[in-house]
Each structure stands twice: as structure tokens, then as C-alpha cells.
Design a protein around this nucleic acid. Structure first.
Lengths: 172, 172
DNA sequence: TTTAGTAAGTTCACTTAAAGAACCCACTAT
DNA sequence: ATAGTGGGTTCTTTAAGTGAACTTACTAAA
């Protein structure tokens, strides 16, 4: 179904969503992070349609998230590897992993354990402020227009947020 | 088109993906995190079909990610608010925000600035180990079957990972 | 009284992409 | 020759999103 475009939205979340395209993206990334590189392996592990996988891999390569590297010539054989841009998505994946482990494990504990080499423990991702290092949740931060938002949108944003914060009062 | 189900996958990423349903989810969550609570506001801000929004909000309420609260009686009027389960998704959103800011800002800087109350700066999310506090990337961790993975799947997982790590050699 | 506005949906027709399966090509191995 | 591997391509069916209009139950204004 034709996707609504968020590409030009003044919001990096929306742009990320648009850029990655659909829910197959995090799953393909997960596979890539686990070391999968070959077409057939992605296809089998994900049980994804070959046409869909072809399309997705092609797009990831075009958009710079993956490279397609020939690993042999006769016959030609390829591997798909994450670029830095693709690898940088890892924390989105680990955040989803943590959320899923907490809320969706059906009481059996996490299906996948992430072991941190440096401390030797099975761990989860934790989100902290990149400036001061404190952990934070929604109440600890405020959102405001940034340098990439034009002033018209910025004033709409202020109206929007102001309206939402008074939502507990009955409208006049 | 009927969505492939990842619900029973031995992987919290896949389960999260399945649970949330589609790309509207992070966008609806983003709106909710910005304080939007009313049907019309979600609809206008997201330019989403009313039927799709109805469906999604209903499902989020059923699945415990949101509550639907009546804020007036005559006529009945409702607000949708994130539960703890929903709010806990915040770090996925902030991870996407960081990724989008870094790779998709088109040179203009971030459209949305996140200000951290405690340190007073405009900040981004950073992912650290929840045990030792060190930051980490993919190379710093290993994945292994966890308590929620059955032994058959676990042995397949080992085969899969072993096969992938030898992918630089030509197959015999 | 009627009309208009608000909020929260519901309905519907059209469009589009995913799902699933089969097929194709270029090799190598048996 | 057949079978297997790897990496796709093609095609039909299915299902859900898109976009718009409509409905319901109110309140407010003319």
C-alpha cells in the first residue's frame, strides 16, 4: 500500500521511519547484526519473500546502509554488510530488544542474551544523556524546535505543545 | 497484505516489531510523547486516515500501551495516554531520534531539540551497558541463546552464528 | 428553530505492496 | 545428464492503507 511520506517532516523519528521503509528493516538489520551476509541465509532465517528481500537489500545498498560485496567470481557470489550508517542503527535494535525482553517474554525470560565483553555480564541497553551521563525518561526532558526546523513549523509546534499541556481542562 | 507473524519468534526484536504492528506505531508514540492525547489532534498532526488511527489506538489500548480516559461526559470525550508499558518505549524513540539526527538532517541540524532538565543542555540519547555503564557498539557484545529460547532453536542459533562467522572463506 | 462546529469515530472504493510460489540464470559437482 | 547452490525475477492473489465522505451526539450561535 502506498506509504504516507514522512521524509520531509521536521522530525528525525518520522524521517527514520520513512527512510527505513517498513518493519522488515529492523528484522533484516537484526540478522545482519547477528552476522548474516548472504541472500539465502537472510531469506531462510526471516522467511521473507525473495522479491521483498531483493528489493530491501537493494534499497539498503543504494541508501548507504549496506554494501554488496562480491566474495567470489565464478560464479559471482555476494555478501551484504552493514556500513557505519547501518551499524549505527544498533542502539535502536538494542532498545527494542530491551523493551521486548521486558514486556513480551511470556514469562520465560529473554530468548536472546546479550553479553558485554568488557564487564562479562549478560546485559541490556540503558539510555543515558550523552552530555552528563544520567539516565532519563520522558519527564526528564523537554522538546523544542531545533536548528533544522523552520520558523513557521516551529510556531505551530509551540501551539501544539501548549494546547496539549492544557488538555486536562474542559475546553471553553 | 497479511503480515508475516513474528510473535512466536525467539527474539524480542521480532516480537516488538510484531507487537507494534506497523510504522504508524512509532509516529503515534512520538505524538503521545509530545503530549497529544485527543483523536483529532493525532489525526491532524499525523495526517493519518481516521480508520487507521481508530484501529491503532484501539489496539494500543487493548494491548496495554495506552489508556482511553473520558475527560467529559456530555458529550463523551476521550483522551489517550501512554501507560508505563507505552512510556517504556521512549528509548526506542530517542534512539531513532539520534539516528535520524545524525544521518538524515539534510545538513540543517536536528529539527527537534531534546533538552535535559538535569544538565540544562540539548542532548541526545546514548546507549550504555546497564550493568557497568560503559557505552558499547556491536563489536563489544555477543549474542547467545537466553532462558526464553528452547534448546532446539538454541542449537540452530549456534549453527547459524558459526556459519556466518566463517563467511569469508570460500565454501568447499 | 436551524445551522455550524466539535469530537470521535464508521464506511467505502480504489490503490498498492506484500505473500507465496514458481521460475530463471549461471555456475559447480556428481 | 541431473542435482545443488546462490541470487535473483516474475506473477497472481490477498489484504490493508489511503483518502474522502459520512454518521452520531452533543453544544453554541444565529
Amino acid at each position: 500500500m502506498k506509504r504516507t511520506s514522512f521524509r520531509e517532516w521536521p522530525c528525525s523519528v518520522a524521517r527514520s521511519v520513512d527512510f527505513l521503509g517498513d518493519w522488515w528493516a529492523p528484522l533484516i538489520f537484526r540478522e545482519a547484526f547477528l552476522g548474516t551476509t548472504r541472500f539465502d541465509d537472510f531469506q531462510e532465517n526471516l522467511s521473507i519473500g525473495r522479491n521483498i528481500l531483493t528489493q530491501r537489500l537493494k534499497r539498503f545498498v543504494e541508501e548507504g546502509l549496506m554494501t554488496k560485496e562480491k566474495y567470489q567470481d565464478r560464479p559471482a557470489r555476494f555478501e551484504y554488510r552493514l556500513t557505519e550508517k547501518g551499524t549505527d542503527f544498533f542502539d535502536v535494535i538494542t532498545a527494542m530488544l530491551r523493551w521486548g525482553d521486558r514486556w513480551l517474554d511470556g514469562g520465560k525470560g529473554p530468548p536472546l542474551a546479550m553479553e558485554h565483553h568488557a564487564c562479562g555480564h549478560t546485559v541490556h541497553a540503558k539510555t543515558v544523556c550523552d552530555h552528563c551521563g544520567d539516565d532519563f525518561t520522558r519527564e526528564d526532558v523537554n522538546f523544542a524546535p531545533g536548528p533544522g526546523m523552520d520558523s513557521e513549523t516551529a510556531s505551530k509546534f509551540h501551539q501544539q505543545v501548549a494546547r496539549s499541556s492544557s488538555s486536562k481542562t474542559k475546553k471553553p
